[in-house]
Nucleic acid binder design. Sequence first.
DNA 1: CTTTAAGTTTCGGCATGCCTAAATATTAGC
DNA 2: GCTAATATTTAGGCATGCCGAAACTTAAAG
Lengths: 236, 236
Amino acid sequence: MPKLKVGKRRTSAAQEDYLKALFRISGRAATLVPNARLAEEMGVSPGSVSEMLGKLATLGLIVHDPYRGARLTPDGLKVAVEMIRHHRLIETYLVRALGYGWDEVHEEADRLEHAISERLEERMWQALGQPAFDPHGDPIPAPDGTLVEHPTLPLQSAPAGSEVTVSRISDRDPAKLRAVERLGLTPGRRVMVVEESVWESPIVVSLDGSQISVPLGLARAIRVEGDAEGGTKPPG
Amino acid sequence: MPKLKVGKRRTSAAQEDYLKALFRISGRAATLVPNARLAEEMGVSPGSVSEMLGKLATLGLIVHDPYRGARLTPDGLKVAVEMIRHHRLIETYLVRALGYGWDEVHEEADRLEHAISERLEERMWQALGQPAFDPHGDPIPAPDGTLVEHPTLPLQSAPAGSEVTVSRISDRDPAKLRAVERLGLTPGRRVMVVEESVWESPIVVSLDGSQISVPLGLARAIRVEGDAEGGTKPPG
DNA sequence: CTTTAAGTTTCGGCATGCCTAAATATTAGC
DNA sequence: GCTAATATTTAGGCATGCCGAAACTTAAAG
């Protein structure tokens, strides 16, 4: 029967997307996120954000300082992490169990993450042998919400001459994903920075003897040497 | 980005549910279905049905004779069958690939059937070896929409003393499903009718020497004597 | 054939979630 | 500190999808 009487549902897909976006922006720190930043991340108008923040605050999922911004409460954080677990688990399942390419999974996961039950989440997790990372190198939160974050840096902040291990490739842009995959740039690969990123320019790295130009924001990396903290220069 | 750019989507989940309900009621014959019948099937008010029928007619998915009823157009039929294929494929996948009990799959499939892509549908189908029947014994429509219907009848219409093969157990009621499964009544089993159904009483059949009382509407069966289409096998 | 019962449609309402534009608050420049 | 640019909130609209009640059509009973 088509009655999707999911009386149990506490959060809508839209609400979950806002919580996820807040987490993407401020992470576990749950710092105040300005309205405009969230509007940009969500691809909606500032007015829509204001309205939704009101609802989420009423539900106790965020705290809203009017005119200042919003931040996740522990409850909101829980929902956000749960959605991220769903997303990354689904991506991993599609790649490992159903032969998807890692550039084909993001959209599918974005739709399914709101629709799967706890039972299905658990079954996929077990079927995969309790994986800890998704195909893009992002960590999969544990069932209890524990999320091990590795100290990674945006690839474009690595200085010329340094050697780094690629840890994550963003799953947002399938076309770029296919491009870098074809060139061999995948999570786990070690590369040498040939030309560092200035302003908004792509960074150039060498891999297997060839040079690859990597767009901004696509990859994150771990330093191979114990470099302290080189020129972190946020664009803008 | 959480923007679920579904620009491609032509039908909403609600619309798909109405089309599915129309198909459940009148099948491929696409006879006129009265408003009230559809309202009952969907668990909504008659007013809501009227409204939705207007939209579906505008989309060319149904034909609506005001005050008479509605019936699926070829386009509407296509959407309905597609959803049924999704539903039965998902149920089959959850049971065969992820170890679900066949009483646990219906709700999950109802949510997921609207969210999976053609690609995922195809991958699940291939992963299962192009199955033709779901765990309840219902046929899975082919990718092109072909749906082989077996000439089954409601179990309660079988006369006392006849021998029949159970072909389908409805997936609507998990509790009843578990009950009959525990007693061994599954698709493919052959049973003898001990006491026929009169008025609205359950029918009593014998199976492995014990007698089982089967609620109305739960099972369908194929006559053993006729056995015209015996070739294909509903799983059991 | 008319009256009445039953079924259907229409009409306001409500909830979600989005938009734009106007009003309001905050921050930055001088 | 006070104005001006920037950001946020509020207000009014639109679309979907549901409800109950009133208006209407069809069918049934006499």
